[in-house]
Amino acid sequence: MSAAIQLINIRKSFKKKQVLRGVTLAIQPGEVLGLLGPNGAGKSTLIKIMTGLLAPDGGDVKIFGRSLAKNKRLLRQSLGLAPQAIAVYPQLTVAQNLRSFGTINGLSGRQVQTKYDQVLPIFGLQDMQTEKAADLSGGQKRRLHSAIALMGPAKIIFLDEPTVGADVDSRNRIIAAVRHLSDQGITVVYTTHYLAEMAALHARIAFLNHGVIQATGSTESIIRQYAHPAVTLSFKGRLPAGLPGWEKDANHLRVSVPAATSPAQLLQTALTNPAVRDAQLTDVQITQADLESAYHTLLERDATHVD
């Protein structure tokens, strides 16, 4: 079976700035891909290229094995996009918004009704069908905005920061909706700064930085490979000196725990050091290895280290 999306050495520059420096990635049907990376990493540019809204300077995008550049009209019918900026008709009701976008996307009257009946419960919009979009809460607008991306024949959905500004209930509904779509065989490309969402989505992660994919894998494999526990000691007054490997930050000393060492062992060694015993220790924090610590490890990697 062909990959839902295959990126082959995608390159893009704006003036003299090289934003994408050779992105190669395969995304499988029914997969949720979490596209992560810092601001300015090129995530939005890459999504525009994957959806045919922007042409790459080099490389190719294949959708289900066919080149997007050579089959734009046909293949863009397979794509649905919900960009970060909310795009709804404020004076139309929820029902009118969904039906209007279904018609715009080329669905017949019967297909619009079928899609409408499917999308409403997925995003929990049943009780607000007659409400104007302008009267919805921020989280409800987010759910409507994401639902609109499904009002078409799309087999691949792009959700760019879909939970920004959403309340807890809306965020949970959007995450549940994405998992439901994946279970139905729809491919979802999902960008977010809320790293905890990756585990909830059972997403495969692609970390984009310096214009290249620096790491890919499941949440568990990324944590196992790149995350490290850390120990932080807080002090009142003078920081103790003579602790090799510990970094000073304001009134804290912090150290990343090597793979072969447990945080407890490192902490015990530090606390028995005379310099620490003579200082005014106020707090001890042990941070376990998680996706956030893996994220920071990857941020610090040089662009030449590419998996």
Rank of each mutant, 00 (worst) to 15 (best):
V284W: 11
L233V: 02
Q285C: 07
Q280V: 11
S218V: 04
G124S: 15
T282G: 13
A41M: 13
P38H: 04
A133E: 06
G42K: 15
Y116Q: 10
A279F: 11
R173K: 08
G106K: 12
H305P: 00
R66Y: 04
Q91K: 09
G42D: 11
W246F: 05
G59N: 13
A196P: 02
Y89A: 04
A55M: 09
G138F: 04
Y295E: 13
G165C: 02
L33I: 10
G242A: 11
T287G: 00
Q268L: 02
S100D: 13
G245H: 09
I86M: 12
L281M: 15
K155V: 02
G217L: 03
S293F: 00
Q214V: 05
L7M: 14
L120I: 09
H193Y: 03
V32K: 07
E220H: 10
L299S: 02
R277A: 15
L74N: 14
V178L: 14
V231G: 09
K62D: 15
R99S: 11
G80Q: 11
P240A: 01
T216I: 07
A26S: 13
L243F: 07
T103N: 04
Q268I: 03
G165L: 11
G152S: 12
T269H: 04
K236A: 15
L107N: 14
D290Y: 08
I286A: 10
L298M: 08
Q268V: 07
G22I: 11
T216K: 00
T192H: 10
G211I: 14
P274R: 06
L54N: 04
G58K: 08
V168C: 00
I104N: 07
G242K: 14
L35V: 13
H296V: 12
L92Y: 15
R254F: 00
H252N: 14
V257I: 11
K62G: 11
G30Q: 03
E220Y: 01
L75M: 07
E292G: 11
I63E: 10
I205N: 08
I5A: 08
P244E: 12
H193N: 08
G139Y: 10
I223R: 09
K16P: 01
A4Y: 06
D278F: 02
D249Y: 01
A69P: 01
K15P: 00
D183C: 07
S234Y: 01
E31S: 06
E292A: 14
L7C: 15
Q129Y: 01
V178F: 04
V88C: 13
D167E: 01
P121Q: 09
Q129A: 06
A241D: 08
F158Q: 05
A215K: 03
A166Y: 04
G58P: 11
F14H: 12
N71G: 12
I47K: 06
T304I: 13
A85D: 08
Y295G: 10
G65T: 00
Y190I: 02
S146G: 03
